[in-house]
Design a protein around this nucleic acid. Structure first.
Length: 258
DNA sequence: ATGTCTACTGATAGTAGA
């Protein structure tokens, strides 16, 4: 089974681009973030024609998350109860009774001084509490855009970035607390020394200057980690394709023996 | 060191957010 996460930066504006990726990579289950689409405008029929059913937690203008699945799936959670006013940022599903799949769009935080930065840390508190209470008895995945650079190797600024937003000790502590709940970073487990980014700013030629961050992860429990065959950060799909503009995030996918 | 993209609007150019 191929599972994936992708911050698409506007699902409706990205639809033709997404189609090319789905046809090429043929994922079985995908978590999308930043739909920027309300539930009523989600193109269910479009994805149904490609063989996917979609579970959606949408929102007008901002945020929004969805799960596409080729196998029967049903929603088990929409959003974090205490964090509803921070937007539609979490959706969970049971995938064919074999896999628990959650995808998240963690708050950006904006700047260290902005109220959203403390909000981001608090949102992580809620996510950690939530995760403690989810059934852990089978393979499960928590994937998405975490908006945190885990270690210096994961950001283009390296240790020079320490203390800046995405690189702070407070954010890294929250990510570590989350992973201490029994989650493994599938990419980093497989490639301990490799520098690979999943996001590049649209501005300033960041992609070509290799000014990226690895902030999109597939986190799996031990049961899932042991079944992982491969992990790919799909950098080719951060490039423009003809006239089609890419998201500022690359997709990340893994092949799992399920 | 900020050169882009998306969605929204008392829309048709300017703003906010990332």
């Amino acid at each position: 089974m191929r599972i994936a996460t992708w911050n698409v930066n506007g699902l409706r504006a990205r639809l033709n681009y997404i189609d090319l990726w789905l046809a090429d990579r043929q994922p079985d289950v995908v978590g999308f973030q930043e739909l920027k689409t309300p539930d009523e405008l989600f193109p269910h029929e479009h994805f149904a024609e490609l063989g996917y059913r979609c579970l959606v937690h949408g929102q007008k203008s901002w945020n929004g998350v969805a799960i596409l699945s080729k196998v029967p799936a049903e929603t088990t959670c929409l959003g974090l109860a205490e964090q509803a006013d921070f937007g539609a940022r979490l959706i969970s599903a049971d995938i064919g009774g074999k896999l628990g799949f959650t995808t998240v769009y963690c708050p950006n935080g904006k700047t260290l001084e902005h109220a959203d930065f403390q909000g981001k840390l608090a949102w992580y508190d809620s996510l950690i509490d939530h995760w403690k209470n989810v059934d852990a008895s089978r393979p499960r995945i928590l994937c998405g855009d975490f908006n945190i650079v885990p270690q210096p190797i994961d950001g283009w600024r390296g240790e020079a970035g320490d203390g800046s937003i995405f690189y702070t000790v407070e954010e890294r502590r929250q990510l570590r607390r989350l992973m201490d709940e029994g989650l493994y970073d599938l990419f980093r487990e497989r490639f301990p020394e490799e520098q690979a980014f999943s996001w590049w700013d649209y501005r300033g030629g960041a992609f070509h200057r290799k000014h990226g961050l690895r902030i999109d992860f597939l986190l799996g429990n031990q049961e899932l980690l042991s079944r992982t065959q491969d992990v790919v950060i799909d950098r080719d799909y951060r490039r423009k394709i003809g006239e089609l503009t890419a998201s500022d995030h690359a997709p990340v996918y893994a092949d799992i023996d399920i």
